[in-house]
Design a protein around this nucleic acid. Structure first.
Lengths: 109, 109
DNA sequence: CGCCTCCATAACCATTTCGTTCTGAAACCA
DNA sequence: TGGTTTCAGAACGAAATGGTTATGGAGGCG
């Protein structure tokens, strides 16, 4: 993986990793805590955490024998910025079905 | 690939595919036109287009012997919405280094 | 010290991804 | 009809991905 943006999108392409990020919004967590919701071995979760770390989406610290993961959402901003360049193409009149639905909704309002 | 969101993020994880989407903002294009900027065979580009089509990010029509690709940005909205849930985590004080930099910048201003 | 807990790494396997070359189908053109 | 252009699909290979089990190291605790 060469570029940061590709790494971030690739990290987000896995539902397990998205769930881990969602969990980390509630605060730091140990590997065992993060693994608990999944029907998956501990090393599998460790691998996911490594992917997230390499994409810059988490940082990790130690506390006693535990390794704590912390959300680092900053790279998500770049991803969101990239998507923002396409805003006009789903808002403006580039998809006729979309336009139709939008018009109908606006008449409802 | 089970869910739509994973398919979209996976599609965006490749720089070639992101470049193809960017090109399609200028309007529909043939496979040959899309392949032109890349040091890559035509079947390789056809495969990328298939990935984009299955993610719902392009639609395809025929015109004579040519197959035209059209941008369909709508699924990008869902991706952007997902990222939006993390907005607070890069804006608010969850990253100490970020906070520091933000403070320094604000002092500059 | 010796054990226990927490977790990373190694080794392995199956599948997917990303590229290639070769081939042939579909639609137009002379 | 026969040739040409445009592109998709098959077949293949290398590397990455996502999972497993087995192992062992680092750091507290009795």
């Amino acid at each position: 993986m060469v570029d940061q943006l590709s790494a971030v999108f690739a990290a987000l392409a896995d539902p397990t990793r998205r769930a881990i990020l969602a969990r980390l919004r509630d605060g730091e967590a140990t590997v065992a805590e993060l693994a608990e919701p999944f029907a998956m071995s501990q090393p599998a979760v460790s691998k996911h955490l490594k992917v997230l770390e390499q994409a810059g989406l988490i940082t990790r610290t130690r506390r006693a024998t535990a390794r704590l993961s912390h959300l680092r959402a900053e790279p998500l901003r770049a991803a969101r910025d990239w998507l923002g360049d396409y805003r006009a193409y789903w808002r403006e009149s580039h998809d006729r079905l979309d336009d139709l639905l939008t018009e109908l909704q606006e008449k409802d309002t």
